[in-house]
């Protein structure tokens, strides 16, 4: 059985907006899935479903065999989420406190929390910034802090919602490099984006969403061919007929 099983998932907001219709996906351990789609196509909603932050209207969703609806807490321990807006994800008032928030909630011992927080900060090159206020970090640093906060909880799956939005070139390359390393370390990665260019070369699978439905699902090399009809710009290199190339030189 696959790590993540989504079967005929539908979602509707209280105001009646339909944001997911009949989504069926199964994702294996170790995959690197890029979910692409125009704004409003339901990417964020899908990630929030995977984390149990939104409940399904109908359909089922399970991670590691555990139903998200039945035991959201157990699922959240395995699935970490990095939100699109890094600011609203900040909970602590120092970098260190913020990273500790997750492990504290897992009720680990203080020493274990300290070890994990140090390791997570080291992994995203934020060691040395422990005492800074998260609000004074740069955009790229905030995103890395958000990744560290999730990493400290040692999840198997990492969900990253538009991780490159509002980042400049150097920050984008650093974050990209960290995501690549997370995948190398054995995490299952799901990244959403409306701009494939940067991350597509890392992906092992490309899922395209439109109007709340999955309209395309396959290996990146083949799936990029059908992109334009769904309102997504294919990567430059594909347009130039050179296939998928890494974004970083």
């Amino acid at each position: 059985m696959a790590l993540i099983e989504i079967h005929r998932l539908c979602h509707r907001f209280p105001d009646g907006t339909r944001s997911l219709t009949d989504v069926t996906l199964s994702i294996d351990c170790g995959e690197f899935v890029v979910i692409a789609g125009a704004n409003g196509s339901g990417k964020t909603t899908l990630l929030k479903q995977l984390n149990g932050l939104l409940g399904p209207e109908s359909g089922t969703l399970s991670v590691g065999g555990v139903s998200v609806r039945r035991d959201p807490l157990a699922v959240r321990r395995q699935v970490g989420m990095v939100f699109q807006d890094a600011d609203s994800q900040i909970i602590g008032d120092t970098v260190y406190d913020d990273v500790c928030f997750g492990p504290e909630n897992l009720r680990l011992t203080r020493t274990e929390i300290d070890t994990r927080a140090r390791r997570a900060l080291g992994a995203v090159n934020l060691d040395g910034s422990e005492d800074r206020s998260p609000h004074h970090l740069s955009g790229g640093e905030k995103r890395r802090l958000a990744i560290a906060g999730v990493l400290a909880m040692a999840p198997r799956v990492m969900l990253l919602d538009e991780p490159f939005s509002n980042l400049d070139y150097p920050a984008t390359s650093t974050v990209l490099e960290h995501i690549r390393r997370l995948h190398e370390d054995g995490h299952t990665i799901i990244v959403t984006t409306h701009d494939l260019e940067k991350v597509i070369s890392l992906a092992t699978r490309l899922v395209v969403m439109a109007h709340g439905r999955v309209v395309l699902d396959g290996a990146p090399e083949t799936a990029v061919e059908g992109l334009e009809s769904h309102g997504i710009r294919p990567p430059c290199s594909v347009l130039l007929g050179r296939g998928i190339q890494p974004w970083l030189p």
Partner: peptide, 22 residues
């Protein structure tokens, strides 16, 4: 803002009985 905060806290397994500072 509060909604975002609820999401962020829940995503990181918010739990009233969390480990406190020593």
């Amino acid at each position: 803002r509060g909604d975002d905060l609820v999401d962020a806290m829940q995503a990181r397994c918010y739990n009233e009985q969390r480990t406190m500072r020593v």
